[in-house]
Write a protein that binds this DNA or RNA. Structure first.
Lengths: 268, 268
DNA sequence: TCAGTCGAATCATTGGTACGAATTTTGCCG
DNA sequence: CGGCAAAATTCGTACCAATGATTCGACTGA
């Protein structure tokens, strides 16, 4: 026997999927649902919560529940697509629409710290080594909200006390990009690993990214090597409702790029 | 002023993050929390719900709340890593532990249907074209649970009525793999797009994958081309708490593979 | 000793109520 | 007609209460 609130949630979910409530449309109010199903408000609210925590509706005090839309930006995430600025995440294949036209705003912060265990292991910094790393954190804003946060970790030992190495610690953009800088210093990037995962945001991350409930975060880690030596780790965190990652292999028909293709994960 | 239930949730989240409640440990019971915070049960439950919907705890009737662990399998998802069986998702770089040692079980189902709008557009099937596609759905189970679901879409027109083309419609594994089969039929795969996104599961998907609340799904789409002609679309859906995707570029130090590396998205 | 039973602990579900806060609508007045 | 204020609508937070389901451990009887 299915619990009452799940039954309501099922019904509403189906109504949404079938298009009876298109994106942006208003769902019945809690009172209406109470009447329709003959249950208490608590039960109705649990049903709505079920949809909320799945990212399907937005509930706003005083005005009701509306169906969410899903229209992510698709980033070209290939390592080969790293632009002149090796630190820049990726150029992105965008589709026109809304606030995205706004020019993104970046905020860079540079720190030198001792690496945590996980970062140290990835960068191959053992117990005896100097575990200090240069952390270049770049927050990218779009439409007033944090769009993605990127943390780049460089072993301090790679660049310590060299003329150009100091640029890495400077709080400014690196002309030509960090990748080129590393190459000039004798650490050309010869390979990289990308690991992509997803998780739910912590409470802090929710407020940091200004995302409602039911929105996962995508985490994209890139560990770059020079030969067999790790030279940097780039971790990019972004809300999954606004981002998709794109990789390509081999020849690609250029028309496809122009077609503004993207894969909608909500498709059935 | 922060709502009461968020305050409790914050406290608990911090306790978990600081390791005061390690993975697997039991949180205080609802009664205890009621006493500690001097609130009603409903409020405590809302706090726990906050952690639940973020995938941080498991709440089980009759036994309490326990901290969840996160230990995903890392799949090698490169197109270049496609094995002999082109349809197989990817070999995976695994780490020893628990149920994963069990031999995976696969269930294949083949259908021929008219493509939906989204799939038709991706496969380049216009209004006037024959929009029927061969769908090969492969469910992979591990430890009795659905581990990942893969849907491969082939334009029917590619393979219709050719001797080997019928293999694509057969309900058996394709010897040598679908990719090789397509190549033999004059459609060698020359390139591919991968799009990776994440979303929360629908109610159906939750039960399908037997996943609790707060677990996102990763969706991995691969659109493969022969020249400028799309020849197949592979969509893989998998719970994000058990899967990570790995791409690599350039030379890789083989020791790194052996190190059993993985990037834990819960790292701070 | 061991298996089965029973009960306590604990969470799940659902109902009810009250008041506060945000939003929208309505209506009045200039 | 425009603007502003009051009212109605609607969701947010919080409390209390009752019953059912599940788990686990303690007890009992063979």
């Amino acid at each position: 026997m299915e619990p009452r609130h799940l039954e309501i949630a099922h019904d509403l979910m189906e109504d949404i999927d079938e298009g009876r409530y298109p994106p942006g449309a208003a769902l019945p109010t809690e009172d209406k649902l109470m009447g329709r199903y003959g249950t208490s408000r608590n039960t109705v609210r649990r049903a709505l919560q079920e949809l909320t925590s799945r990212g399907r509706i937005d509930v706003k005090q005083g005005s009701g529940s509306t169906v969410r839309s899903y229209d992510p930006v698709t980033h070209l995430a290939d390592a080969s697509a790293e632009g002149d600025d090796g630190e820049r995440y990726a150029s992105y294949v965008d589709r026109p629409g809304g606030e995205r036209d706004a020019e993104p705003h970046e905020r860079l912060r540079v720190m030198v710290e001792a690496a945590g265990d996980a970062v140290a292991e990835l960068l191959g910094l053992g117990e005896g080594d100097d575990r200090s790393v240069v952390i270049r954190r770049c927050d990218r804003y779009l439409g007033g909200r944090l769009w993605q946060r990127q943390m780049a970790y460089y072993p301090r030992s790679l660049t310590a006390d060299t003329p150009r190495g100091s640029e890495l610690v400077g709080p400014e953009d690196i002309p030509g990009g960090a990748r080129a800088l590393l190459e000039e210093m004798g650490h050309p990037q010869t390979g990289s690993w990308d690991v992509i995962g997803a998780k739910m945001p912590s409470l802090k991350e929710s407020t940091l990214f200004s995302i409602g409930p039911g929105v996962p975060l995508m985490v994209h880690d890139r560990l770059a090597y020079s030969g067999d030596r790790p030279i940097r780790l780039i971790r990019t965190v972004m809300p999954a409702d606004r981002h998709q990652l794109l990789y390509h292999e081999g020849e690609l028909p250029p028309e496809a790029l122009r077609a503004g293709m993207g894969v909608n994960v909500h498709d059935r």
